[in-house]
Design a protein around this nucleic acid. Structure first.
Lengths: 212, 212
DNA sequence: TTGTAATGTGAACGCGCATTCACATAATGG
DNA sequence: CCATTATGTGAATGCGCGTTCACATTACAA
């Protein structure tokens, strides 16, 4: 059987998406050319008409994933809302993105990615640094206007990212044994309690809901 | 050349240690029988005198790593000291352990581990759950005696672990481009500020110290 | 001492997987 | 409509790596 022909730009997107799906199911370890081709509905050899090799596919996938994660975060950061609202929105959207694409954290964690290709590792590291920077600025703004406690912006940003990433890791190891969204919500609530100004110490009365 | 003979229990330890070192340098992806054998100074075939196969080596390595991490944490948890002191000690020892054994986080992150062997994945997940439980109890105790803010023990424990793990990931990706210990210390300080009772909020009145 | 089990090794085997090749078939520009 | 290029495919290639085998050498129990 011969596949109807499409130009390279379209095929490249299909292949990258197929790769992401394969990683979600079989992991980066199970990401073979044959698997990608099968998922994309084409022959193995045809992959090489659109990519120089597997490494190039990984590079394209890295760009796509980085863009998917950073894009929404940057959008939220640039938009309207309080610091708490922005942090919550970014956190939730990130969790939702992972829940929808299990291959995403697998790709980020995988050393098959980090160690194999120096430039790809650098790309990912830079994207993470940018992410931290984005969150830091939101937090710094919140500290300045008294919305948040007086805390270190960068370290707090890293703490937030660590939460997401750790949830994703456990979720990946347990093969989705728990609800990622629900777990994320629990952690977010606790985190918000910690960082917002003058919040806790509700030890006794459960009254002060809706803190504005 | 023929290696002087030793019994299996000794050889098994040597092989596991060699494997851990190889992972630290080449990653789980680069963990090949030939590499392990070379590092341990023995022939490939001899590996199979002491392990049934590669999978069994990974299993033994998983046990070793779990024990190394959980062991010290449990010891500190059972010892004397305030909650803050215990959390700090566990955090620092964990960071130091990772700094000394780069293969440790690589192993934990690797899906080559999680996805290949169900029982190994379960072992790791259980160990992590136990770790969370240990930290939770420390935190719960701190909350009860007023040392810590009224926060959710389990979620706070996960936040702490997420911090460590995220540092380790970035450290791994950047191939040790920054000082893991220093970074860990910065994050720990910020975290302690967040969780201890009545610390920040110096914004206005530095009154409500010591709430019990 | 002696024979049996444990330990050690180089060579070979087989499989999976990335990549290439020779050859169709469709698109596209002149 | 023709020629050139882009796209698509099954089969072959080659290599890395886990594992096995046939055969030494040492430990050790009787």
């Amino acid at each position: 059987m011969m596949l109807p022909k499409k130009n390279t730009t379209i095929r490249r997107k299909e292949i990258v998406q197929a790769a992401l799906q394969v990683i979600g199911e079989k992991g980066v370890h199970g990401l073979t050319i044959t698997e990608i081709a099968g998922r994309a509905g084409m022959s193995d050899a045809n992959i090489y008409r659109h990519f120089k090799g597997k490494q190039e596919i990984l590079k394209a996938l890295g760009d796509f994933i980085s863009e998917a994660m950073m894009g929404t975060a940057a959008g939220i950061a640039a938009g309207k809302g309080s610091s708490l609202e922005k942090l919550s929105a970014i956190f939730r959207s990130h969790a939702a993105l992972i829940a929808a694409n299990p291959g995403l954290p697998r790709f980020m964690f995988s050393e098959e990615i980090h160690l194999e290709d120096l430039s790809l590792a650098k790309t990912i590291a830079d994207k993470i640094a940018g992410y931290i920077e984005t969150l830091s600025m939101i937090i710094a703004a919140g500290v300045k206007n008294g919305e948040l406690q007086s805390l270190a912006p960068r370290e707090t940003a890293i703490t937030l990212l660590g939460m997401i990433q750790f949830i994703a890791l456990r979720w990946s190891i347990t093969r989705g044994a728990f609800s990622l969204d629900a777990e994320a919500e629990r952690l977010l609530n606790n985190f918000l309690l910690l960082i917002q100004a003058g919040s806790p110490q509700v030890l006794l009365e459960p009254d002060t809901m809706e803190p504005v």
